[in-house]
Amino acid sequence: MAVTIKDVAKRANVAPSTVSRVIANSSRISEKTKERVREAMKELGYHPNLNARSLANKSTKTIGVVMPNSAKIAFQNPFFPEVIRGISTKAHQEGFGLYLSTGQSEDEIFEEVKQMVYGGRVDGILLLYSRVNDKIMPFLIEQGFPFVLIGRPYNIDEDQVTFVNNDNFKAAKTVTEYLMLLGHEKIGFIGGNLDYVVTIDHLKGYKQALINANIPVRDDYIVHHEELEKGGQDAVIELMSLEQRPTALIVVDDIMTFGVLKMLADMNVTVPGDISVVSFNNVMISELSSPTMTTVDIHIYDLGYQATNCLISKINNPDNGEKKVIVPHRLVKRQSCK
């Protein structure tokens, strides 16, 4: 015979309503009582029917996670597994599951988000990117649906959006200034897709540092490719074919930088002997590359954790208003610069 809430209440010597509140992790119940009830649940082998509770509470205890493109492509970049690690840690602590988007195109992802909202599949949504002319954010704002952005809103009033971000402008400006301090003036920039706001902010920071130092901004030193290993390889082919090659490169993503280093090695261009390279993200590959990468640690895990914390707070307290969280970054100096 199945164990019921009444059985747990009897074992813990509390009212059945107290057991329900413990299952819901109510702040009205003391930690001591929660511990006693949970111990009784464990002893009796009681598992709450979360689906039934969700129907009663009109809650799914699920967070929608929206990636910039299909999971197949996104997961080739270590950024996304790491940010999802931060998301899942906080979600697990608060008793939430995750619902990952699987759309292959911008339109498919938008349709999927509409199904999440209209179908009541999730309690809130995490957007793992900010895109120029994005349709999803305006839709979620119009619906009044809880969401948090990892990134910076574009052409939308920041007071309308809760977002968690790095200061990507400042980070790119800092690494450009670092290369100039090392004596470099011919500095190339290998960026990601210009549809993404993070790329725009990186490019602005790079340009501003050059302008401040009275170094001309050269359009032929700026290239954009997919943030994958092949993108880095293609970018190097472009830049190394120039009559005046750069003496240093800023690459906006570690997995791209891995492709950059491989292609430079194939061309017998030594790093940092012939060219210095600075990267972004500080994923594990940056320590395993040869040479090891000088890179900007943007604390990817913290981005995911903080964004999830903000979203669950919005779900539980919808009248609290929007907030902005800036996760700090730091330059990690290794062997790829000279």
Rank of each mutant, 00 (worst) to 15 (best):
G183N: 05
A40R: 11
I275K: 01
I87F: 10
S26C: 13
S276H: 10
R85K: 15
G151W: 10
L249F: 10
R121D: 04
G95E: 13
M67F: 15
V148Q: 01
G151Q: 00
L140G: 08
S130A: 15
V22F: 04
D234F: 07
Y301D: 04
I5M: 15
S276N: 03
S279C: 09
N316L: 15
H299R: 14
L55P: 13
E226C: 02
I211W: 01
S276A: 13
E185I: 06
D201Y: 12
F169R: 04
Y206P: 06
I84W: 07
P318Q: 11
V83Y: 02
D253K: 01
D220W: 13
D254A: 12
S313R: 11
S313F: 08
N51R: 12
L264E: 06
I187L: 08
L98W: 06
A24M: 07
M293F: 05
E43I: 15
N77E: 03
L331E: 10
E142K: 15
P246S: 01
I109S: 05
S101D: 01
I109Q: 10
I285G: 02
D201A: 13
G144Y: 03
K58E: 04
F147W: 13
T247S: 15
N13C: 05
I23V: 15
F139L: 13
L140I: 09
K72I: 04
A15F: 03
F280C: 12
K34T: 12
T33D: 05
D201M: 14
P78M: 11
L228V: 12
A265D: 06
G191R: 07
G321H: 12
A171F: 07
F110L: 15
A307R: 02
L228E: 08
R38Q: 14
V277Y: 04
V252Y: 03
E108S: 13
I187A: 07
A74D: 12
I5H: 03
V8P: 05
F147R: 08
S20W: 07
I73P: 02
Y305A: 10
S54K: 14
F80P: 00
K170C: 03
A12R: 09
D123M: 08
E106R: 12
G120N: 14
D159K: 15
S336G: 05
Q160R: 15
E226T: 06
F145G: 14
A248G: 01
D302V: 10
D201E: 15
I215T: 05
L181Y: 02
K262C: 05
G144I: 01
K61W: 10
L311E: 00
K72F: 05
A52V: 09
E106H: 10
M256V: 04
